[in-house]
Every structure is written in C-alpha cells, then in structure tokens.
Amino acid sequence: MIQKWKNHAEAYLFVTPSVILTVTLGIYPILWALRYMFYDYKGYGEAKFAGLYNIKRLFRDDYLWDAIWNTFVFASGKMILTLPVALLLAVLLNGKLRGRNLLRGIYFMPTIFSTAVMAVVFYLIFNSYNGLLNQILNMIGLPAVEWLNMQNAMLTCIIIAAWGGIGNYMLLFLAGLQGIPKDVYESAELDGATGARRFWSITIPMLGPVLNIIMMLAIMSALESYEAIMVLTGGGPSGATEVMHLYLYKLLFPVSTGETMAQDIGYGSAVAMLLALIVGVITGLYLYLSRKLNDIYS
C-alpha cells in the first residue's frame, strides 16, 4: 500500500511541471474569460458586473459578423486553393519520380519560415506602388494590379495563406498515401484501371480516415489564422480583410495596430468564447457529417 502510493507520488512529480503550466496558461485563461464575459472591464479601473450585456452586444455588433463572414470567405478560399494542389502534389510524389526528395524539400520549404516575417516580404511583393510583383508584370508587358485594394486584398491574403500551407498539407497527404498498400494499385493496374480511375476508386476512399483528420486540421487552422493578415493589411482596407481573430486581437490589444478601437476586455472575452464555439461547432459538424457519409457509402 505504502509502496503503491510512493509510486503514485513519483508519477505526480513527473507530471507536475506540465500540469502547472497547462493549468495556468491553458485552463485558467478559459475560466478567466468565462468570468469576464459577464463584466464591464476595460483593462483599467474596476470590473463591474454587467450581466448579459456583452453577450447581447455580440448580436448587435455588425462589424463582428462581417469579420466572421470574412473569415469564412478566407478559410474556404484557402482550403479550395491549398488542398487540391497539395493532394495532387502528394499523389505525384508518391509515385516513382526522379528528384522526388528534392521536390518535396522545395514544396515544404515555405512552411519553415515565420508567417509574420513572410508577411513583411509579401507586403513588398504585393505593394501596389512599385511592388516587386507589379514590376515583374510591367517587365513582361502586363498592366500593374492593385493587389491590396478593397476588391483584391482578400484574394491576396488567400494566395499568401495557400503559399504557406501547401507544403504542410502535401506532407500530411503523403503520410496518408504511404499507408495504402502498393499491391492494391498493382492489381488495379492489371485490371486496366487508368490513373484517374485509380485516384477516385482507390486513393480517395482508402485515404478516408486520414483525410478526415487533415480536413479537420485545415478547417481549424484556417478559421483561426490572422497573423499574416495582421502584418500585411491590418484588416484593411476598410475592414475588407478583417478576420474574426484579428478583430479579437484589436479588442484586447488595440495599442499596437494604431487602431481607433478601444480596449474592451469584458466584451473581448465574450467574443473569444463565441469564436471558440464557432470553430468547435464547425469541426464537430464536419466530423458528424463525414461519419454519416462514411456510413452511407460503406
């Protein structure tokens, strides 16, 4: 008995640092937000209990819902541009191909750099006035494009996000593809199945479970990203690229962006809760639907 508890105590000792950090930096902030979403707290002075005021305010805040809409546009755009290219690259690299490792190294390279640093580089590339891309377009006789204006800014942000994401998803797809036994393809080939047929009838169904995890990761990371947009456009021009987590950042830390927004921690907590809920519901819904579809097809 004593020996058993001594063993337990030892185990607790091992997990203590990790548990302390998780509780203080992971769980406590959630409880903190759960409390302050019911308070009127601007970051200074005293926090006053405000009941449901902040939650009611969520529904009246058109700017927030615009930001949420922008986030959906951004996330779907990023996924539509990233995932098919990444999957195609993975399928091609999974076959016998000369220079396979070198190509894989090149495709993955963008993911090793800091999003913020690359956003600075992309700012110089996509800048409307003497940006590097417009210089190249001029050189080959094409007209310059206003990459960061109201109409194009979101598309530019999506392109940049895809640039940083393709390599990552290619690797994840490759890992999934390597789990498919080679002899399935060989026997399909003997039966005369063409490349496209093999892709739709073997690759996609056999990728199933891995595909679900990858999709879920893609949805979550696309809905939650804002770093590159923050450095590139700061959400502008006039809110055209304002995504939901960038809006949250501005509510909590308005000093750094030079925004006119005022710090509002009570309301920011309510927004953070809503955003966590939105991402949770969407990923949950995705998992539920994909499971349903799997049941129908198998």
């Binding site: 930096l25 769980i27 902030p29 903190w32 953070a272 955003l275 966590a276 991402v279 990923t283």
Partner: peptide, 15 residues
C-alpha cells in the same frame, strides 16, 4: 481537449 479549444490571443491577457 486542450488541442481543440482555442481562445486565440485572449489567453495572453490573463497569462
């Protein structure tokens, strides 16, 4: 569970 709950930048305030 913690891998799925993200409060974004809010976490940094209490931290």
């Amino acid at each position: 569970a913690m891998m799925f709950i993200h409060m974004g930048v809010l976490t940094l305030k209490p931290a």
